[in-house]
Design a protein around this nucleic acid. Structure first.
Lengths: 244, 244
DNA sequence: CCAAAAGTGTTTAGTATACACCCATGA
DNA sequence: TCATGGGTGTATACTAAACACTTTTGG
């Protein structure tokens, strides 16, 4: 058993996309009074854990993600460090931490990572706790300061999505242009004209059409595409454009 | 005297612009053997310090910045947290840390902030140590992992500059369009056609011309402008544009 | 044959790029 | 009067935005 660093943790905001909405994976935090059976806490949190003494942030984030999703080699991006003195200090949080009695420090800073995964590949490692996907438009009450962390993750994800092709991490390897469009719409909270969106995307040489169509859909099957990071890296140009 | 958190620090990358180049403020790290007089260490570092037990990251960054520049209310942006296990573990770093004997932890994580300041407003608080501006194109040897931290700061600054109007933080309140252009060129490492740059900038309603010109220049005096964050916030639009 | 989503083209407005000459000031 | 940087316009190519009908499939 490795020793943990008592005052530093990593929290993972795990995003998934189900072709309709952007979802986030949350873990239920539930605690009942042992004698009275009264519910002391019942809310949801992101997944996080303390880092180990000989562990980098990136490694800790990958470990936490794997523990929950079973997945390796997933897109993970460090987006912000949270260090407010009383970021975890509500009555509920204190009850919870006391109940855990793992020798955590009273002041914990946390480094936030978000991960992007293709929903369809995940089989949740349902440990003893309740784990569920929630649409970012319909979230339950969150424990600790996790609402704030999630808000920041979303803000950073949106900003990165606008300037880099990271959306593909949320899709299967082969995807349709409508799926890609819905992804952008779901994350950026907007809508695009289908013809204009297709025109724009089809100009991008790194979105490559396959000789293959969707199967088993009850409508006209769409063409499938793959994203080539390789072509992207070789052809990208940079712009400056703080909008008017 | 407040108690420090032994394993968490904040490092500030202080950027300044002198109308020619982007500069960064560094502090000399020099150590001589007390007996032989031999120079054990002579390199430069960013400014950083441990956080106090009852201090937020933002507050610590502002404190560190003020300690060096004397300035308050400066643009500060948290850009990344560095947590590699042996990020501060070279022979030089160990000699230095031993010499400081302040009870720091052997594993220190650091949260990086960059600040943008108008060079002309700074009077360096020259404490007992040597503090100097260096052009980012002509840097000395950096101690600890500060080259890596600086690289990341630059990367994040460039990316933010491309999509948000933060460059004005590096200029005096009243500036000319040529100064603005040189700023973008210096940070993004490129050049722009003067006519096209002016056309683009003059369309931006939040860059407001004044009835005022440069004085005491030995060429045709340029018109002065101010940036209005207020107008910017009211008129900005968002785009999605991972370049082709 | 119906429902559902795929696929397609044109027009107009706006933005990006390339490029060269005259102007105002201080020394 | 010279050196220095300020200020300006046009043509062409490209990109963005608005907008409606037909096609393919499974049920």
């Amino acid at each position: 058993m490795q020793k943990i660093v008592p005052n530093i943790s990593v929290d993972c905001v795990i995003f998934g996309f189900d072709f309709k909405q952007l979802n986030v994976l949350l873990v239920e935090r539930k605690l009942q009074d042992e004698k009275t059976g009264e519910t002391l806490i019942d809310d949801w949190t992101l997944t996080g854990y303390h880092i180990f003494e000989d562990e980098d942030f990136d490694t800790a984030a990958a470990r936490i993600l794997k523990g929950l999703s079973g997945l390796d080699n997933i897109y993970l991006e460090q987006f912000y460090a949270f260090g407010k003195v009383s970021r975890v200090d509500s009555p509920k949080d204190n009850i919870w931490l006391k109940h855990q009695h793992e020798g955590f420090s009273s002041r914990i800073v946390t480094v936030g990572y978000y991960s992007l995964i293709d929903n369809s590949t995940v089989t949740l490692q349902l440990q003893e706790r309740n784990v569920k996907w929630f649409s970012i438009t319909d979230l339950p009450e969150l424990g600790f300061d996790h609402q704030e962390i999630l808000n920041k993750a979303l803000e950073k994800l949106r900003s990165k999505l606008r300037s880099e092709p990271i959306g593909f991490e949320l899709l299967p390897e082969k995807f349709t242009l409508s799926q890609l469009q819905k992804l952008y719409e779901a994350i950026l909270g907007t809508t695009y004209d289908r013809r204009n969106f297709r025109k724009k995307v089809l100009q991008m040489k790194y979105i490559i059409p396959l000789n293959e169509k969707q199967k088993a859909v009850k409508h006209k099957p769409a063409q499938l595409f793959i994203f080539s990071r390789d072509v992207y890296e070789r052809t990208k140009r940079e712009r400056f454009d703080f909008s008017i």
